[in-house]
């Protein structure tokens, strides 16, 4: 019983992190993704905020799933998600003020993050609470990882640093994360400009395709 549950969670995790990743497989949430990932720190902040909303919305919607009638489900989802995002915005503004200053513009964007609505519609509204929670965690982490990855891919060539200003997000204790990889670096500006986001995204997607193809080839080779 417990082991099947564990296997189920492992599968959910795999889906969220790789096979059915919000960005790399579902190609959702590109707007916040491309807008905020000028640095790995920004990506991390946005990812964590989105994950919080995603988990909360999955939980809420899954527990209300029997109440919600199919005809009005979409407005209900939108209302709930908008409420959650506004809550996060308010709380961040109050207690994570510096980070809110950096990400402030993008927090309301989470409302339009179609990944959250998509998970609500296709998963949370049909699954028990515990699975919906795990899905939120998995999808959230998957999204956060991509945001951080894209942020890093853009930040390193773009400004020669990694996790710059991480202390604003995580507190002074995390100052060690802030790396300056190249001193006096003038920067490959394209990467922190919007076109760079598309470019880096394209290469990341291509990379995933290559890995998947290799894996499949290895799989079928071993099966044969």
């Amino acid at each position: 019983m417990f082991s099947t549950l564990l296997a189920d969670y492992r599968q959910l995790m795999r889906d969220g992190l790789w096979d059915n990743n919000v960005v790399m497989a579902q190609m959702l949430a590109l707007c916040p993704l491309l807008a905020v990932t000028t640095s790995a720190t920004n990506g991390l902040g946005m990812g964590l905020a989105s994950t919080a909303v995603l988990i909360a919305s999955n939980l809420l919607i899954s527990s209300l799933r029997h109440l919600i009638s199919p005809d009005v489900r979409i407005p209900v989802f939108v209302l709930l998600i908008a409420m959650l995002v506004t809550l996060v915005d308010l709380f961040m503004n109050a207690w994570l003020y510096e980070l809110h200053k950096a990400l402030g513009l993008f927090i309301p964007l989470i409302v339009t993050n179609c990944a959250i609505l998509a998970r609500a519609e296709s998963f949370a509204s049909r699954q028990p609470v515990h699975r919906a929670f795990m899905d939120g965690v998995a999808m959230g982490i998957g999204f956060t990882l991509i945001l951080v990855l894209l942020g890093a891919v853009r930040e390193i060539p773009g400004s020669g640093t990694l996790f710059a200003d991480a202390r604003l997000l995580l507190g002074e204790g995390f100052a060690w994360m802030e790396l300056t990889l190249i001193e006096d670096y003038r920067g490959f500006l394209l990467m922190i400009l919007p076109p760079g986001a598309f470019l880096a995204m394209g290469f990341i997607l291509a990379g995933k395709r290559v890995l998947d193809q290799r894996r499949q080839a290895a799989h079928s080779a071993s099966a044969a």
Binding site: R186, G187, F188, L189, L190, M191, L193, P195
Partner: peptide, 9 residues
């Protein structure tokens, strides 16, 4: 264009 945007100097 990429070079012009990236390395204006």
């Amino acid at each position: 264009v990429v070079l012009l945007i990236s390395f204006p100097l």
